[in-house]
């Protein structure tokens, strides 16, 4: 058998930390990203609330944030993180860059999902005299719902990868275990176990997402 110094409690705590970081940043990231994604779709040229100025600012802004690798983003905004949570170490501190990382990603995913909606549906909505808000709420979102669930699933899995990186700056979580024990102390058991835990997380999230999306699409 492998030799290991990690206790079961440590594994549990690490898993909880990971889920906490993923959950919090997903929640806040969605609250920011979903409206941004909707804004991208409705203000784009030909959109129901076309707005050249707004779109031409928001669109590249999202690209800029998206082009930064998470590890660089995390380090770059340390002063900002410190300002908000008072420290740059620990799970709460990791959540700040995670939100900034995931929000524009969610915005893009939501944008793609909404753009998949048959333009004929929007035309029908307009022919009924629906207001822009009604078009979004009663037509766009329900029609894109299945696809939106898959988008959020993809975002969640992206977040698990990012939280593992957050571990390198003492963010805690499963990634932290892998680095501190598995990599730095050559604890193979820790390494293998953390990989298995991450794989299980991803599998569970993906199959839940798929199942929910299927249900939303009434298949």
């Amino acid at each position: 058998m492998f030799e290991t110094v990690i206790t079961l409690e440590q594994f549990l705590q690490a898993s909880i930390d990971t889920l906490y970081m993923v959950g919090m940043s997903l929640l806040i990231g969605s609250l920011v990203g979903i409206p941004l994604g909707i804004a991208l779709v409705v203000t784009r040229p030909g959109g129901i609330l076309e707005n050249k100025i707004f779109y031409s600012i928001l669109n590249p802004l999202i690209n800029i944030v998206r082009s930064l690798p998470f590890i660089i983003l995390m380090v770059a905004i340390i002063p900002f993180t410190r300002m908000i949570v008072g420290t740059s170490i620990g799970t709460n501190a990791a959540i700040v860059p995670l939100i900034i990382f995931i929000s524009p990603f969610i915005a893009r995913l939501v944008e793609n999902s909404l753009l998949e909606v048959n333009p004929g549906i929007i035309e029908a909505a307009e022919s009924m005299g629906a207001t822009p808000f009604q078009i979004i709420w009663h037509f766009l979102l329900p029609e894109a719902f299945g696809s939106l669930i898959l988008s959020i699933t993809t975002a969640t899995i992206g977040l698990i990868g990012a939280t593992a990186m957050a571990g390198t700056v003492g963010g805690g979580g499963v990634g932290d275990l892998a680095i501190v024990y598995g990599y730095q102390r050559f604890d193979t058991f820790a390494m293998v176990t953390t990989v298995i835990i991450l794989v299980i997380f991803v599998q569970i999230i993906q199959s839940t997402g798929n199942a929910l999306a299927r249900k939303a699409r009434k298949e």
Binding site: N118, E143, F145, R217
Partner: peptide
């Protein structure tokens, strides 16, 4: 208004 491809909400 009615349309060639019906434009019903699939959901």
């Amino acid at each position: 208004m009615i349309f060639q491809h019906f434009n019903l909400l699939e959901s």
